[in-house]
Computed example of a mutant assay.
Amino acid sequence: MAAAGFGLIAVCYGFARFAFGLFLPGINADLSLSPSVGGLIAGGSFLGYCVAIVLSAHFTERFGARSVSIAAALVAALGMTGIALAPSALWLAPAVMLAGSSTGLASPPLAAAVSIALPPARRDPANTVINAGTSAGVMLSGPVALLAGAQWRLAFAVFAATACVMAVLVAFTVPGPARAEARATDGAGLRHRLPVRLIVAAWLMGASSTALWSFGSELVALRLGWDGGEAGGLWLAIGIAGIVGAAAGRWVARFGIDRVHGVFLGALALGTVLVGIDGTTPALALFGGALFGAAYITLTGVYLVWGVSALPDRPASGLMVGFLSIAIGQAVGAPVFGVLMERGSAGLAVFVFAGLAFLALFARSAPVPRPVEARAGGGRVAIRFSRQHGTCQLHRD
């Protein structure tokens, strides 16, 4: 199940959502798109994600993880087929939005499936391993871009076929309705428990990340003269380094959310600057891409753990809160970056968006309660509350 979930995330996030930025220069050339129009279309992809992830959390709790996971793969296939066939911007925009919405459909059912299939102590590591599938998809899209060259339509046709294969795999591996558990709480209760600091941090990080996800290829084309195939090297660096984000759950358990959060927000900002700064070199750009990839996947893993721990009885909704906030930030950030780049300068846009990551440092997680100890008779009893897993353990000497 974890392997299939990893693959589904790779296809939906790496191919259906983030590969658009990799092929954007070639798409711009063929369809005569300006940077601002390209930014609006990229923002539409993130907007489709926002709508889909809310629906996905609801449908997962109602119909089970398997059905929604299959739907995510099929929606990705349909959207990428539309991109491959797009004759104009008017056709391209809804196809990109549809493809991007598949990512919103994919994440909540996988979080719910993990909560059903695994004991509490193994859920955070499994969730962050599945989440790291994004890196595999991004990493694979780089070589595809190198092989396809200017043939972006062929690349998206291959991606669509891969999504169809994933639909079959998740059908046999993800738990179905019979094993799903209904975790229903009233809407008011959910609103009262929403982690506001998580929402703010995820929103700012998401907005900051659009500098490379939506415009990384254009930045290296501007700074280094790279074409779409050469920009695939940047995507390869992002994808390879992002695999380290699979360890986010273990790092959070060892060092705490705030420490991991702060370190990788700094890495995200630095990586963005190294790729987009005037005077960058190929080595600095690739190193910046690697920093960005490791930081982004780790941070999404942090927000996943943060959200699920805040709503342990509704893991699909807990994931939805953090990932929806990221996507809203990206939906707003992509068109704003395009406008800044077109009317101001690429350097101004890069530094403004790197600064958004630093603002997210001020949103800190709630403190974890310390163990409560009491003496009973001749021994000692310690009650340890796990905020990550929503459990209490009783220890007696």
Rank of each mutant, 00 (worst) to 15 (best):
G43W: 10
S56Q: 08
G64K: 05
L105H: 01
S45I: 02
A73G: 06
A57N: 09
R123K: 05
F46D: 12
R62C: 12
A86I: 09
A71H: 03
G48I: 02
V68D: 06
V138W: 02
A73I: 02
A57V: 05
S115P: 08
A136K: 07
F59P: 10
G133F: 01
A42M: 09
T134R: 01
P125N: 04
G64Q: 05
V51H: 09
R123W: 03
A71W: 00
L118S: 05
P108N: 00
N127I: 10
S36M: 15
I27Q: 06
L47T: 13
T60V: 04
P109W: 03
G48M: 04
G43K: 09
A111I: 06
G26F: 11
A112Y: 04
L118W: 11
P25L: 11
M139W: 04
F63D: 14
G100K: 00
L92P: 06
L33G: 06
P120T: 05
S115A: 15
V129W: 10
G43N: 12
A72Q: 00
T103Y: 00
A95W: 03
V68W: 01
Y49V: 01
S102L: 02
P119E: 11
L98P: 02
N28H: 15
A71M: 10
F63K: 14
R123D: 07
A72N: 02
A84F: 10
I116A: 05
L90G: 13
M139V: 04
A57H: 08
A113N: 01
L31F: 08
V68P: 03
A57D: 04
T128N: 14
G100Q: 00
N127H: 11
I130Q: 02
G104F: 00
I70V: 15
S67H: 14
L24S: 07
C50I: 13
A136M: 14
E61V: 04
